[in-house]
Nucleic acid binder design. Sequence first.
DNA 1: GCTCCTAACGCAAAGTATTGGCTTTAGTGA
DNA 2: TCACTAAAGCCAATACTTTGCGTTAGGAGC
Lengths: 185, 185
Amino acid sequence: MAIKSAPRPGGRSARVQAAVHKAVRDLQKEQGRDGLTVPAVASRAGVTPSTIYRRWGGLAQLLADVAVEQMRPDEPPADTGSFRGDLLAWLMQYFDEMSSTPGRAMLRDVLGTENHAGAGKCDGFIRQQIEAIRERALARGESPVPADSILSVVVAPLMYRILFADETPSANAIAALFEQCVTRT
Amino acid sequence: MAIKSAPRPGGRSARVQAAVHKAVRDLQKEQGRDGLTVPAVASRAGVTPSTIYRRWGGLAQLLADVAVEQMRPDEPPADTGSFRGDLLAWLMQYFDEMSSTPGRAMLRDVLGTENHAGAGKCDGFIRQQIEAIRERALARGESPVPADSILSVVVAPLMYRILFADETPSANAIAALFEQCVTRT
DNA sequence: GCTCCTAACGCAAAGTATTGGCTTTAGTGA
DNA sequence: TCACTAAAGCCAATACTTTGCGTTAGGAGC
């Protein structure tokens, strides 16, 4: 549940949000998910618990909000010189991250919330990165596979394996789906 | 987090579990997910809250346990006379259920829990139903598509759309993926 | 059928977390 | 600079969660 966009980047709301998010990330690193409570986060962030309850509603929604921000891509996909190279490299790093312990925790936090906004943003981030790769390919004169095909043929099956089958997709598994996608579409 | 299987089907453990599960289902129907607390469930089930905390650990795990049981198939897939017919009919009803409001809630409850057992069971239920359809097809002399293909080509993309894109797959969308699967595999 | 044994439950007392009412403050615009 | 508003702080009341300990139901051995 994202915040409406504070009045100004340097305003109090933004400062509080930043402090609370940082407190959550720090506490997760230091002591894992146990003992992570709203009062603990509030204390670490230097705010009162009621601030967090009022703004986020509770721990679950706060964790989802933090997780989404951590999933936001911090840089455009690496440029390897070709569509195939770019896409495969991005897939590898993305699913490596998502199948890690913290990655799975983020997915849980995001998907376990009643509010769907977080999951929608994840989908948006994925599409955004894929589109960036596709546009670069188009600029090179290549003819990249449609984004929806990549989502359906590669991303969705890998996500399913992480979420439902508790698998950690191997590089080979990722490459195999990738091949299906780029050859058959 | 399923219970170890009670000493006996008629034993006290089994009775308590049944009463608690029923209380959760009833309360969810009556008042939605708000106001659904451990004390409320305990009171409705005629047990003390500490029983629930000790056995399930908390509300989230209890909800996940109940959700998994509700996802358990209650009957084998309908027999329409052909592999294609059976599979398409099952897909339609399954994703109709999963994209409904209570279906989405079950998925949230199951995927939002730290313990992966619930999600693994969901995967198991899906495979079980698909295998039942495939075996019937084999008995008829048909040559059904491998279960893994169905999972990757049809189930995973539909699940992705429900979970991440907040879509409710149309009958056409399901049929289209189904065609891809049965024709290209 | 009787007795012993153990896992699971009830109860009640702490211990935490959450909520609501009201006050105070920071940031914005006149 | 002043007034206005949204958000935060503070504090008390309420609700939920955890824990220790006594009790009981169900199963095992005889």
